[in-house]
Design a protein around this nucleic acid. Structure first.
Lengths: 143, 143
DNA sequence: AAAAAATACTTGCGTAGACAAGTAATTTTT
DNA sequence: AAAAATTACTTGTCTACGCAAGTATTTTTT
């Protein structure tokens, strides 16, 4: 059968994604911010709306609850978020940004944008937009 | 600053890639093949050329040596490959396919192709090709 | 009001990635 | 030929994912 890993959509996606998340991690680190791209995903959600439940964060980021639970554990350790029991429903945890996390919102967003620029250097805006649409379509197909 | 995670290249890439590798894992599993997409990457290289060193496999798949070392450990456990010391250079391990791995080459390739088809349903061949080129460009930019 | 079901989260286990440090064998240098 | 550098690989540590199972709390059913 005619199949070549190097030409396959899945492999190209996988490698491009990995390089990009690694570059984001590196850009954070180089600027003195010690967080991972997964933690950045959580922070981004909280910058949009602070005080969300773990379940909401899991749904938004398409992760399962255990992953989010442990991500939050690590983010608490590094002082980025607080976990607060919901006053009316004790099953639920509300996750809030710390002051420290609020303070670094702008530089982190800048670095996220910088990473995208580095990745899309020399690519026509129009072509990139089309590619983003295809990525959406792929996600739809596989959901 | 105007930044939205949901619209960002990195996030879309990350989610599309994750869905695709998960789907591949699932397709393998559903058909009674118990291997991960990372192990599939290694197998693919060995189907192209059997008996490669761990270092070669690491370079080809853009992984570091520790990752490959442990991937091979797991693949030996599940009977997919053998690790043979190089007769002339005892630093080097040569990795060979087992009979079992050779036997399942075609069905695995079929499932890999099936996964790509599932992901690219409803996408024009031309658009997909352009997208693949952009993925290559991104990889080049970040390498 | 008690039992059952649903919901939110945590823990355990196996796989894998990134990075640093370590070991063993070979090649290069002196 | 001995010392130094290089190469190939392994081990340790931390982060994270995916799945299954477990706990606690709340809601629904009866």
């Amino acid at each position: 059968m005619k199949y070549r890993l190097d030409d396959s959509l899945g492999y190209k996606l996988f490698q491009a994604s990995r390089l990009m998340t690694n570059r984001l991690n590196q850009n954070f680190k180089d600027n003195g911010f010690y967080l991972t791209h997964e933690q950045w995903q959580i922070l981004s959600r909280l910058y949009e709306k602070d005080g969300q439940t773990q379940n909401q964060l899991a749904l938004l980021n398409e992760k399962d609850q255990p992953s989010v639970s442990r991500l939050i554990d690590n983010m608490i350790k590094s002082g980025l978020v607080k976990r607060v029991s919901h006053p009316q429903d004790r099953r639920v945890n509300l996750i809030y940004l710390t002051e420290k996390a609020k303070e670094i919102e702008e530089p982190l967003k800048m670095l996220a944008c910088k990473t995208i620029q580095e990745a899309s250097l020399g690519i026509e805006a129009e072509d990139l937009a089309k590619c983003l649409n295809i990525l959406d379509k792929i996600r739809e197909n596989l959901k």
